[in-house]
Design a protein around this nucleic acid. Structure first.
Lengths: 246, 246
DNA sequence: CGTGCTTTTGAAAATCATCAAGTATAGTGG
DNA sequence: CCACTATACTTGATGATTTTCAAAAGCACG
């Protein structure tokens, strides 16, 4: 599982302090005031992650928290026979590793060259005692993820393939706006992850995802200049679809 | 949507203070020290909920938190055409309503006569400022639910009907032990919710759930003295099934 | 210019859903 | 107390969406 889709490597090395971290404003780290940033920086270990490399393995002892500061990672769970469920994609600003248990509940792997910040679990715990604002922020993050998870359960349990793909594309676009993911003008959506990952995220097979996208294209609901670049041509119709209407 | 399966109404009325709340030890309220319980009690509004009655409606302004103190509730989301996804069941001790947004992300309805405690969102927020232990506990709760949600995504996205039902029965049993849900001796599992609710939880139809259970019964993996009472006869085999082996 | 991967497309197969009906159970009212 | 009705649960036959199996087309990379 090394590398795959090409994408320019950039700022993959170097330990830049929290103060100049581009992802800070959109992450839990924003809860720390500038004057206290050095304390946070003392705990943060920046770490480049090559495309296709995993930095969290399900079942391993959970010794660290992570914060994605650049790129995109997929989070997933596996069944013994290899069936895979991608539970989410993490882009810049996403905090990972929340779990009470002593081992990770999921694996995480970069889908494009990425950068993460690693925090010792125990040491960050201590820091939280001094910065309740950050703890509150963590609770907000967890709450939001819970809401997203419920939405995804609705998708996985009750939506058709067509509805799932439409939902995914729309979510990608609105997420792109907010969470620092790659975004283009107009209705352009960039998909840094492979079709397989999308399929495993939507509970479908690659073939079904491909066929469904092709059909959306022939129906003029989307354009597909390249497999990784989708243009939403009829946002209203897609929204209807995603909602389960029609 | 009123009433349905019979179950003895008991302690459905009366405002018993937090101090004598049977669900306290298993809920976030356990984070409050006995001496401060009166402050918590001042905010808590106990409220009986009849079977089939809903006490949270998706999309409504989220003005309250809830804590289930007795009985069982189902949490669910709806699509415009009526398709339904049950995202979880809440039994005594479960805290509900975590969400940053101003409106509820799901509906909640009692599946048996239940009792909930209602808290004003804003007032509980203030209380949290004074009791950081409770806020931490909330974060733990949210983290655990997140883990459970990911497990459920794996189930919905990648498991077969058979595997889903096996997973459900096993989860019900282990949950029963911990979270105060009804539990019997041996491998007995009580299912207070209707087949339809189970189906909507597992992303299946009622018919498929029924057929699958019948098949598990003919294969001697379970017994079914009544539709609401399941006996796990071959736990090992069920566990294998749930894990996706065989 | 192959080689290996991803993506796409096609045909056949399967799981699960839908439609339909029968059985069982609970609650109601005479 | 018993019949009656409504609802839940189960079972059967059919059908459809999606998966599986198979292979071609498109792209990067060496």
């Amino acid at each position: 599982m090394t590398s795959m889709r090409a994408r320019p490597l950039s700022l993959l090395r170097g330990a830049e302090p929290c103060a100049s971290c581009g992802a800070r404003s959109s992450s839990v780290c924003a809860a720390i005031e500038p004057k206290d940033l050095d304390r946070l920086a003392a705990l943060a270990v920046p770490q480049p992650v090559l495309a296709g490399r995993s930095f969290i393995t399900e079942g391993d002892p959970a010794e660290h928290f992570f914060n994605v500061t650049a790129g995109t990672a997929k989070l997933f769970k596996l069944l013994p026979d290899g069936r895979r469920q991608v539970t989410g994609f993490a882009s810049a600003g996403t905090f990972l590793g929340l779990a009470v248990s002593s081992s990770y509940a999921f694996s995480a792997e970069a889908v494009e060259p990425s950068q993460v910040c690693r925090f010792s679990r125990t040491r960050l715990r201590h820091l939280l005692d001094d910065f309740p604002a950050m703890e509150r922020r963590l609770l907000d993050v967890a709450s939001n993820e819970l809401v997203a998870a419920q939405e995804q359960m609705l998708l996985l349990g009750r939506k058709t393939a067509r509805e799932r793909v439409a939902s995914f594309l729309l979510a990608r676009q609105s997420c792109a706006a907010g969470c620092g993911a790659p975004v283009g003008g107009g209705g352009r959506v960039l998909l840094p992850m492979a079709r397989t990952d999308i399929a495993d995220y939507l509970g479908l097979t690659v073939e079904t995802v491909s066929r469904t996208m092709t059909r959306l294209r022939t129906e003029r609901l989307i354009d597909m200049p390249s497999p990784t670049e989708i243009v939403l041509r009829n946002r209203d119709k897609l929204t209807e679809l995603a909602a389960g209407l029609t």
